[in-house]
Amino acid sequence: MSLNRTDLNAIADDYVLGLLSETEAELLEELLARDPALEARVAALRDGLLPLDLSAPKADLPDDFMDRLRERIAAEPAREDAAPRGVTITPVTPQADNLPQAPRAKWRWLIAAGIIGLAVGLGTGTLRPTPEPRVVAVLMNASGEPQAVIEDYGNRDAKIRFVADVTLPSGKTIQAWTLPSPETGPVSLGTLDRVAPAVLTGPSLPEPAPQQLYEITLEPAGGSPTGRPTGPILGKGFAHIQS
């Protein structure tokens, strides 16, 4: 299941107008970071419509506004760095899915599938000799909402990016896992002390397989004490192989 260019452009237009749900918008931003052509299209429409924002009458900020803002910033646990801007992707996967007419709940799945669908287009459209992920897994929470995307490069490195506002309580760590086979059991790919894009360097593992399980769990600070997942699952999903 994947999206064609026309569908994507339409979704991107809706994004600029503010017609997507928060999750959909987060997913689209995930796509934008991977798709310069789409990002340029969004930027052009956004800047074209900017006079509509700039026409708003100015309002006076309350006197304590800056103080309140400073307090909030001081309470921020960690800053999110610039997302790694990885591979250039040319999506070429014509499909008949008529997305705009699809029921709303379905969108999430379609867009999540779209991330994979786009990445599949890599084989034919790569412009740069950047390493390509061997598999991509979209990790969903228990309600089926995408939380994060893991790209496994199969060379011990995996990249993780978050597509939802995942909460990390203080004193906790997010740990990423994969299950290469039932015999080996879950293997840690690495830990994260903040909700930000990261490169995980795990142990040397066999080449990732289709439908291999990936998940992220909430663990005590520093990671699971047992070497196995112990905490609640924040998201899980299966690997989609990249051709």
Binding site: E39, A43, R46, L50, D53, E76, R79, E80, A83
Partner: peptide, 28 residues
């Protein structure tokens, strides 16, 4: 506006590669 500014603070680094204008990004 408070929430937006916290988010802008957190994600400002992501703007550097954006092809559009800074104002457009901020208002988005």
């Amino acid at each position: 506006l408070q929430e937006a500014l916290v988010r802008i603070w957190r994600k400002a680094g992501q703007f550097s590669g954006n092809p559009g204008s800074a104002k457009g990004w901020v208002y988005t």
